[in-house]
Write a protein that binds this DNA or RNA. Structure first.
Lengths: 158, 158
DNA sequence: ATTTGTTGCTTGCACATACAAATATTGTTG
DNA sequence: CAACAATATTTGTATGTGCAAGCAACAAAT
């Protein structure tokens, strides 16, 4: 996300303050945060040729070989259709393979997939380091907990 | 970043507990929250035929006729290209119109656009009410502030 | 055992967003 | 002034995600 451009006429009170009426809106703020932090994630995970959802999904598959899409959907807070898409692409990249068993689908890592696991952990760490230093390591922990708790509350609604 | 692995396998102590190792990851949690809350937003704003980004953009245009894409980009934390796309669609719906002035583009609301303004405010309120009641009205305010602050910190990086 | 419903996964389609490159205007400097 | 750099916007293209509908396998009930 870019867009500096300062000047702006009637800036009130504090300089550098980019608060606006949307800052009080969680719908707005949560999306802004997600976009900003995903940019970091994509940068770091991109170095291993994945974006963060793929990386996390691959983690799950490596750590729980034979995991099903529905389990992944629950763990990753993504819809089943999204999981299908992610798995498809990981399969194309030869990082996982699917096995049909009845109406279930079991997902297993390939060797290449397993080999990527440490790199994912590293990238994961780098992402954490970057946003921690930007946001402030003290706040980050509590913020994360609260954000997750809120996400879960909303998700449990339906 | 701490990766606390929580129990695995079958449901742990508390029922409804969906914590996992990603709950400690802000990249993950922020996206989960954004998706969950956007679902609410789309539902409410959908009733007036917009999704939330369009609605907020239209607000800005109604409240600051002649606003430029770059200003909108700054206010809405979206890239200029995204603003162009949003404005295009609002123009198709006859809710705004564009005027070229040199290298700038000035965006004005149409009457239909202005007429929608109160409905947007209402939908906005309903969204707030819904997530407040889900998350807990006490937490929501502080959470929103922190989330916005974090988003701004990350955005100010580059 | 056939029907009916339920569960698990996949597909078709749509949408929000971004990046990189293209275009057009404005500013600057030799 | 001409050439070049900077700024503002748009366009081509790609990606992540979801909804609704489809399909396949299983379960339940008559």
């Amino acid at each position: 996300m870019r867009s500096e451009m300062i000047n702006e006429t009637e800036t009130p009170a504090v300089a550098g303050q980019k608060d606006n009426r949307y800052s009080a809106c969680l719908l707005f703020s949560a999306n802004a945060l997600a976009r900003a932090i995903t940019a970091i994630g994509d940068e770091e995970f991109g170095r291993i040729g994945l974006s963060y959802s793929y990386a996390y999904l691959l983690c799950e598959v490596v750590d729980q070989p034979g995991v099903t899409p529905s389990k992944l959907s629950e763990t990753l807070f993504l819809t089943p259709s999204t999981i299908t898409r992610l798995v498809e692409k990981l399969e194309l990249k030869q990082l996982v393979r699917r096995e049909s068993e009845g109406k279930k689908t079991l997902i297993y890592p390939t060797e290449a997939g397993e080999a990527l696991r440490p790199a994912i952990a590293e990238a994961w760490g780098r992402v954490g380091a970057r946003y921690s230093s930007a946001i402030g390591p003290d706040d980050v922990c509590q913020l994360t907990q609260q954000v997750f708790k809120a996400a879960r509350s909303l998700d449990d609604l339906d």
